[in-house]
Nucleic acid binder design. Sequence first.
RNA 1: GUGGAUGUAGCUCAAUGGUAGAGCCCCGGCUUGUGGUGCCGGUGGUUGUGGGUUCGAGUCCCAUCAUCCACCCCA
Length: 427
Amino acid sequence: MIKAIRGMHDVLPTESAAWRYIERTFRQLMDSYGYGEMRMPVVEKAALFVRTVGEATDIVEKEMYNFVDRNDERLCLRPEGTAGCVRAGIENGLLQRSGPQRVWYCGPMFRRERPQKGRYRQFHQFGVETFGMAGPEIDAELLLLTARLWKMLGINGLELQINSLGTVAARARYRQQLVAYFNGYLEQLDSDSQRRLKTNPLRILDSKNPSMQAVIDGAPKLCDCLDDESEKDFSRLCALLDAAGVAYSVNPRLVRGLDYYEKLVFDWVGTIGAQSTVCAGGRYDGLVSQLGGPVTPAAGFALGIERLLALLDEEKLAALKPVSDAYLVLAGEAAREHGLVLAESVRDTLPELRLRVNCGDGSFKSQLKRADRSGASLALILGEDELAEARITVKYLRQERQQQTIPQTALTALLREEICNHVQERG
RNA sequence: GUGGAUGUAGCUCAAUGGUAGAGCCCCGGCUUGUGGUGCCGGUGGUUGUGGGUUCGAGUCCCAUCAUCCACCCCA
């Protein structure tokens, strides 16, 4: 039997209800802040990510799904959304003299990692990118809207960590200091960190190895090397967050795996298996020009939808299971035929009604059982008796109430009264 | 990519190296046309896959695939 590719998963009808709920919430949130939706291709030129994410990063070095197209172009499945979003913005003229842009997107990303909880080879991100706004106000807006998102979804217990990496120049200076420092303690570094010293020395700072903590604690601090502008923006951002009542902690060791970040970076952390980051982002003022666009300040973040789902309250998820409103029970061949026709006319007038028709075999008893399990509040019964008189029986499955047999012509009015008038918004 | 645990019915799990089982789900009956609780019966398995050891393997060995965990990495 052919099975799904490792690390790639099917979303079943019971689970997709939660996905729809989350996606609906994203749309609501983004609408309320005035962000527009972008939809980018899943396949891009590999060079796009090599140049932006960074040649020496794990994502590019060993996790990308690369392939050569029939015309010998080197393509890949996108490992993240920001680079493609910037490429699309430049290519479509969104970043040429058109003022600030606020956009979002949602879709699958691909990284060939070893799967575990909260980490899959095809995973899904909700991403937000802003262009043309330099100040810390837009950074604060991004953090405020994520905080609002947690509130909308009923997620508690995420912690906001922020840090400033400084400008590219400041970070390069710091990197030199750091390499010099760690080179003096080479024998105390574990093998991972010795490797990182050459590839991404800032990463050594968030090593989980307890035996390295002493060396790390003695390392020069990034915040001591910050340029004036980064420092000023960072403290301004802190003041904005304070004013808005968003709690955060400054984590001087918070760094990024993607090369394009500078100045502000942030993480919303929780616990999903061994993974902690749910949502992460920052500022990437150099990326647009690096990809051939005009010099454009930019900031954004991405959020892992699978990780977000893992944080959703079980009770809340259970309440999202798809249910029908009414289930049409059909006894006898004539009723089966007439039932389909009747259901169509009901849907003509009540499109928001969720009506499931029993199709195929099933005893009367088992049809009622299916009606019950469908979650329907009403069973509509059409048998030989009803058919002969052009009537239909309505049985209340969720209330102590006598069933009634009414003319079929009165059915839509009854359904509108009993169900449609009480239906709130639903996904 | 490294180390470890696990893999039996649709689901959750049993089964000293000796005839593969239970609960839930599904179908039918008790009730000629009345669900949710009860009772009875039934369908459903190349024991992840491929080799090997053995008279005999779900069980032991090897490989492989997948899931989970810790690294690594990251959303």
